[in-house]
Amino acid sequence: MRYAVVRLLQAVPVFVATTFLIYTMVWSLPGDPILALAGDKPLPENVLQALREHYHLNDPLIVQYGLYMAGVFLRGDLGETFTGQPVSELLQDRWGVTAQLALTAWVFELVVGIGLGVLAGLRRGRLADTAVLAGTTFVIAVPVFVVGYTAQIVLGLNLGLFPTAGTDQGWPLSYLLPGMVLGSFGLAYVARLTRTSVVENLRADYVRTAAAKGMRRTRIIGRHTLRNSLIPVVTYLGVDFGNLMAGAVVTEGIFNLPGIGQQVFQSIQLQEGPVVVGVTTLLVMIFILANLLVDLLYGVLDPRIRRG
């Protein structure tokens, strides 16, 4: 318990540092966001001034950051986009989409990835193992957007198995295909990691001892081998949940899911400091929480860590 609290407290300086860093980075992007907003047509000088003042763009960086943070903590105000939409409202709208997408991808990764990995590990050198190896190599080698567009056109458009785009059909139907595309890369990793780990553990002394004692094979694998094999996999899956949230940019674009990834991409282009900072801060928090959960899970899987 104390461990959990300490880990949570550690998140505070991380939070301040990342937000400041991100704010600085957005701020130092070249170009004037307000002028870029105006495009080819002239905006009268006084209109430019009014807009700059509204977004505090004339103040020094540290003042801008201070004002932003004061807004966040004193008024719970995450700022607003250049189109005047409050960031908090925007996150509310979009957060659910990304979370559902990431979760779908994550569950897919977890179930199918571990399943394939265990299968390959137990049948090392046989056809199933080779097939998994070949399949995962292929998935890792092909860029996500190729997988995405191909899946969309073949499975969505031509075969009509899944909706092509959008969230009209709700969860889970609208999220299945994008979730699988998003999770495919991680799945390949999970499968390979599980396989290696299972193979290694099958050779371990304790397995031989258990077998020598006459324990049934299913019990050896289920109770001992798997549990020990899953430690590296759990680490990966924990960190990867954060990756999935952040990595949704491409998938959300292809499948037109109005989530966080899409928003960050657009906001970086428009140099909308508050949005980028708001969203990335939340992503950082998720990363921290996911890591915390992973550490706690270790204890469950391996008592040595809990007591140590």
Binding site: Q152, I153, L157, G166, E252, G253, P258, Q262, Q266
Partner: peptide, 18 residues
């Protein structure tokens, strides 16, 4: 008015009749 972030996706949806 259905809002898309990508023209390519909108085009795929047009083909799919969505």
């Amino acid at each position: 008015f259905k809002i898309y972030a990508s023209r390519d996706t909108a085009y795929t949806d047009l083909r799919a009749g969505n």
